[in-house]
Design a protein around this nucleic acid. Sequence first.
DNA 1: TGCCGATATGTTATATAGTAGCATATCTGC
DNA 2: GCAGATATGCTACTATATAACATATCGGCA
Lengths: 175, 175
Amino acid sequence: MQLTVFPAPTSPTANLDHGHDHGGCRTKALQTAEQLCNNRGVRLTPMRRQVLELIWESHRAIKAYDLLDRIKPTTGTAKPATVYRALDFLLEQGLIHKVESLNAFIGCSFSDHQHQQLLLTCIRCLEVEERPAAGVMEAIDRELEQAAFIIHHKAIEIHGICIRCAKHPPITATI
Amino acid sequence: MQLTVFPAPTSPTANLDHGHDHGGCRTKALQTAEQLCNNRGVRLTPMRRQVLELIWESHRAIKAYDLLDRIKPTTGTAKPATVYRALDFLLEQGLIHKVESLNAFIGCSFSDHQHQQLLLTCIRCLEVEERPAAGVMEAIDRELEQAAFIIHHKAIEIHGICIRCAKHPPITATI
DNA sequence: TGCCGATATGTTATATAGTAGCATATCTGC
DNA sequence: GCAGATATGCTACTATATAACATATCGGCA
């Protein structure tokens, strides 16, 4: 029998995402969020901020109920609505994306300028990469013009193997 | 107060999808499905066929539990697993698509050749149009080559207003 | 500064979506 | 017509998401 073992995803709290210093990502994202909310006159409350922080703990998409579990120790009382309301706010402000095909959420790396990127989810390490992909967006605009379809929202989600995982093939053992 | 009233979606059983004779679509889709399954040596059982027929009753995406409600009168006993198993089979065979952003399913119009199309969902009439969109697919392939991302599956979902609904503006009343 | 309306969160309950695991039935090849 | 494979029945459960109303907090203004 052949067993294919993928490396387990790193723990949600470890800054191990493929070796980059993720603390920098998170700090920058939170600063940008504060600024954006200030400029817009909307409130990044402690609850909303905490959810955003948790989402930014890694580049893996996180599920609403996992966020809930992480919040409970702090609040003691958090319920689904608490999390979903924070998520709704963050989505409205373009600070996070929902990965529809995973029912999960990731921080938006381009919250201060571009939205509606390609979302590349690695089925091995579960990290999601966001790519503005101008060429793809233009091709879609052309296609929709032909179809005379007036766009409101795009979700472009690709699942596959990222370059880092492709370079570190899974351990294969015969038992 | 301004009230914007969109025309209600036509009933699931009516062949009224924007005026085209939908019976033809359905019949053709079912014939293609029978052929494909025969060629592949897989079984389009009565249950699976019924689910496919129900999905093809319109061009609107249908939810698993709505399918379940439609099946119950016939079988008396259908449970979620019954429907989900049929859906899994139809997805595997490429006879239907899941619209991830709706948690709903539509028949595939290109089951005998192309897969992984653009799915255009009209937020007014709720119909889903499938478009192969070669230009978009090429642009995505180029982008993924740059990212060195090995693709397994695409979900490209656009929400907006279709050409037919754009031509029939909603009734607007002041109350 | 303390009151008011607006915004945000707490709380309970429920709706919607999907899966696990084992029993039973049906099909297909021999 | 029997055996193994495939499909469905069935029970229970897990996961995802929202509704509706109560309470708390914020921020402007009398």
